[in-house]
Amino acid sequence: MTKTANKQVICKVLLDAGKKDENVMALCSDSRGSASFTEFARELPGQFIETGIAEQNLVSICAGLANCGKKPYAVSPACFLSTRSYEQCKIDVAYSDTNVKLIGISGGVSYGALGMSHHSAQDIAAMAAVPNMRVYLPSDRLQTECLMKALLRDEKPAYIRVGRNAVEDVYEEGCVPFEMDKATVVAPGTDIAIIACGEMVKPAADAAILLRGKGISAAVLDMYCIKPLDKEGIIKTAEHAKAVVTVEEHAPFGGLGSMVSQVISENCPKRVRNLSLPDAPVITGTSGEVFDYYGLNAENIAKVAEELLKDE
């Protein structure tokens, strides 16, 4: 099983694009190393800007470049990009409708032991609440590549969150059923629907395999497009299931679970259980340790799904 960090794929796609189009630019806030953008800076120094630890400047400079016809990508830790520069993301990028792509690296609890100051468990809610701002959380390297190539073709603002560590493939080489702003059905099912985003898609898919071994048919929906949310995909998947489980590396408020619950309550009411990080500073540990501690793993997802079905 191939394991690659999504941030590395982002750099490769942008580097390839930058070699063909001098307007493609990458800007970092003292984060080229952690963002895996050292190669971009080395090969295309004229299309790379290092702002230093100044996230607000990073975003505003990107907006200025976009208004000059450039195609800037702001690459910075998600925990800082989504908080320190929130006003600039809101006004300079979204409100002004500038062609700036905000790449939040090391999202969720990727920084592990560095604690709450370096975790981004609120960014889905924060960015999705901004009018005109799209929000994406790709699940693996293959989907990340498809998403980045699609974003290169449009001129609208977007926030993309990826993790820090290498992740296992969800899809297969040459077989990625990607459609822009449409959730991907990873597995069909009729008993329980599991809707996940980002790094939680792989454990959701593994949970479906565990459930299948117990005679339970579990659908898995990869909701990489948090905003615009694929409501049609949610309804179609939920209508054929008895209950729904959502899984996200985010706080319990305002994220995927909240959005899915709203759609289902309005269109096809049924029980929804949201698995997420707690409304509290998380424990210290690696991403895997944190996920296991809070039940964001295949075993617990399958367990919760079984419990929900027993109550139906």
Score class of each variant (00 low, 15 high):
31 S>W: 07
82 S>V: 00
265 S>P: 07
79 C>Q: 03
192 I>G: 08
104 G>A: 12
246 T>Y: 09
198 G>W: 00
144 T>S: 11
133 M>Y: 05
117 S>Y: 06
151 L>Q: 01
275 L>V: 01
61 I>H: 09
66 A>I: 12
199 E>N: 00
270 K>E: 00
113 A>M: 05
162 V>P: 15
306 E>D: 02
30 D>K: 00
211 L>H: 04
130 V>Q: 08
221 L>W: 12
55 E>A: 06
12 K>E: 13
17 A>S: 04
7 K>A: 05
89 C>N: 10
278 P>L: 03
241 A>E: 11
270 K>D: 02
46 G>Y: 01
141 R>S: 12
34 S>E: 01
42 R>I: 05
149 K>A: 00
297 N>M: 06
6 N>A: 13
148 M>E: 05
225 C>G: 12
182 K>R: 13
188 P>M: 05
5 A>F: 12
273 R>K: 11
162 V>I: 10
4 T>G: 08
151 L>R: 00
124 I>G: 12
16 D>M: 03
57 N>M: 08
26 A>G: 12
204 A>N: 01
219 A>Q: 06
63 A>G: 09
26 A>H: 09
44 L>V: 10
114 L>I: 01
129 A>N: 10
29 S>E: 04
273 R>P: 14
299 E>N: 08
181 D>K: 03
123 D>F: 07
202 K>N: 10
230 D>Y: 10
236 K>D: 09
185 V>C: 10
122 Q>S: 14
132 N>I: 05
14 L>F: 09
248 E>Q: 11
70 K>Q: 13
15 L>I: 00
250 H>M: 03
